[in-house]
Amino acid sequence: MNTLLRPYLATTDRILRQLRNDHRTVAMIIVVPALLMTLLYFIYKDTPVNPLHPVRLFDRVGISMLGILPFIVMFLITAIAMQRERSSGTLERLLTTPLRKLDLLGGYGTAFSLAAAAQAGVACLVAFGLLGLKAAGSPGWVVLIAVIDAVCGVALGLLASAFARTEFQAVQFMPVVVAPQIFLCGLLVPRGQLPGWLEAISNVMPLSYAVDALQQVSTHPGATGAMWRDLLVVVGFSVVALCLGAATLRRRTA
């Protein structure tokens, strides 16, 4: 068992050491979502509360953003990091060794998921502890959902990198993969109010289920069956994306 796990653990350790030495990337992962939540707070700080809907706008939008921001940041960083491995030749050299594709992607996924956990924890600490974000459920559930959603961003970033030949092309997947999910996840308009064909598209996007799960935490004091169902869907998307990423991983970077 140790022999089977050694390549995976070695890859995870290598990526974590690279992250530790890349201070700008660490700052983007940890600091940027918290700063954006702070900006969102000041945007909505003086917005009057609708008597018919007593929930503050910051509470409604903010809890959704705690899932959306980690997804965006981790997708972008993962896609660029993996493409950098390709363009530098590191990936090609690694794939000439006995290292399996799933070991490689699993190591990347684990390393960036640990970073995502730190990111989600800091963002939620700032939102609930400093900015006064309120939810009916426990902030712990919000952290869990944010981490799972960030892991999904990691998996989709790894998959997107398989179709990019340069870091710039990896960035170009942002408006293709991420932007439609933001528009259709229920943040701007409740998904039930979307035209039927748009609602059908939103039903096959993982971010929709992450936002739905966060809204369950926002309105219910305890974990609900709908929340767990939505989380399982997001996990399923992550697993499928990792498997597809392994299947499309090229041994040649040219």
Score class of each variant (00 low, 15 high):
Thr12Cys: 13
Asp103Pro: 05
Tyr209Leu: 06
Leu105Phe: 11
Tyr209Arg: 03
Val171Arg: 06
Ile68Pro: 00
Gly121Val: 11
Arg84Lys: 14
Gly137Asn: 05
Tyr108Ala: 03
Cys124Asp: 04
Val189Met: 06
Arg24Ile: 13
Val240Gly: 01
Ala118Glu: 04
Pro175Gly: 13
Ile43Phe: 12
Phe168Leu: 15
Val126Tyr: 08
Phe58Thr: 04
Ser87His: 04
Lys134Ile: 08
Met74Asn: 14
Met28Val: 11
Phe163Ala: 14
Ala246Ile: 02
Arg93Ile: 07
Leu36Val: 14
Met1His: 13
Phe128Ala: 10
Gly245Val: 01
Ala241Ile: 01
Leu105Asn: 03
Val142Glu: 06
Asn21Tyr: 10
Gly62Asn: 09
Ala146Asn: 09
Leu66Trp: 04
Ser113Cys: 06
Phe237Cys: 02
Ala200Ile: 00
Thr3Phe: 12
Cys243Ser: 08
Ser138Pro: 05
Pro195Trp: 08
Gly107Arg: 02
Leu131Val: 13
Leu194Lys: 10
Pro190Ile: 02
Val126Asn: 10
Gln216Ser: 14
Thr11Ser: 12
Pro70Ser: 09
Ile63Asp: 03
Pro54Ala: 07
Gly186Thr: 09
Thr253Ile: 14
Ala135Asp: 05
Ser202Ala: 15
Val189Leu: 13
Tyr209Gly: 02
Gly129Pro: 10
Ser238Val: 02
Ala115Gly: 13
Ala179Ile: 15
Gly132Asn: 13
Phe58Pro: 01
Gly157Gln: 00
His23Met: 08
Ala136Gln: 11
Ala213Asn: 06
